[in-house]
């Protein structure tokens, strides 16, 4: 699976991590912890794949990172700023540093692709001009166009989101993340609802964005093949804990079996 020249060793781009997660804990019910002290660093230029079985806590990890879910304890830093303590306008400002991509894509269905991309910029448009999509500032619309061009879907700009194919919709969602101008991209199983070819396209795009734009990409997956092919680093999560950290070439079938072992037992 591994492409030539990729992942011969675990590359760790220099520079401070854009996303730092320390000792993150979360339980939804008493005595049933979902996250049991997770640590994670993602540096600019990296595509870190978080690999794990269903219920291992990997999606909760991403959602806690921008506090769509409130973590119980631990620290999350985006570009050196602690997001766990922020509230109100501060929280919204910090959230702008991380863009989220979802398995179910979550575009506003009855709006066209271009509008959906501009919505990524809502956090930095303030006041009355943010209330109607027809009043968005020109530079936002321009940045939306460039993001759509970047994902190769400029010709779909005026098409309603609910008429796009799954792969196209996910690429529009990536354009929305680009338009947000975040330094960190958090992708929560971005290809689970896509066919294999669209899945390949979407991950190639994310990898490309990480390397050429220098974004820090954390991507939750449960396809080991795709993780090996596109990840610059693979973090294995099982039962709310990091169980290994590998380069795409050094990861073994035994590592992967370890991750999914528990799920097989439950099934």
């Amino acid at each position: 699976m591994t492409q030539a020249g990729r992942g011969l060793e675990a590359p760790r781009p220099a520079g401070a991590p854009a996303l730092v997660v320390r000792d993150l804990h979360k339980s939804f019910r008493r005595n049933e912890p979902v996250l049991k002290g997770i640590d994670l660093d993602v540096r600019p230029g990296e595509l870190v794949v978080v690999l794990g079985a269903n219920g291992s806590g990997k999606s909760t990890l991403l959602r806690c990172a921008i506090r769509l879910i409130e973590p119980d304890s631990g620290r999350v830093e985006l570009r050196g700023e602690d997001i766990t303590a922020a509230s109100g306008a501060d929280l919204r400002r910090l959230r702008r540093n991380a863009a989220m991509i979802f398995q179910q894509i979550h575009l506003v269905r009855r709006r066209n692709a271009l509008d959906n991309v501009t919505y990524g910029a809502l956090g930095r448009i303030s006041g009355i001009r943010s209330l109607s999509r027809r009043a968005f500032p020109d530079d936002v619309v321009e940045s939306a166009w460039r993001s759509l061009e970047r994902v190769g879907l400029a010709e779909k700009a005026w098409q309603r989101a609910d008429t796009l194919s799954g792969g196209q919709a996910q690429r529009v969602a990536i354009a929305r993340a680009l338009c947000q101008q975040a330094q960190v991209i958090l992708a929560d199983e971005p290809v689970s609802s896509l066919d294999p070819r669209a899945a390949d396209d979407v991950l190639a795009l994310l990898a490309e964005i990480a390397t050429s734009d220098g974004l820090a990409v954390a991507c939750v997956l449960h396809q080991p093949d795709l993780a090996r092919k596109y990840g610059t680093r693979i973090v294995g999560v099982a039962a709310g804990e990091v169980v290994f950290e590998r380069s795409p070439t050094s990861i073994t079938d035994a590592d992967i079996a370890h991750l999914y072992h528990g799920e097989l037992d439950d099934g």
Partner: peptide, 17 residues
């Protein structure tokens, strides 16, 4: 959720999502 995650305000989320 998607718009909230991008840092949009409540009013923006209501109007656009």
């Amino acid at each position: 959720d998607a718009l909230r995650a991008s840092g949009a305000s409540r009013l923006q989320v209501f109007l656009h999502a």
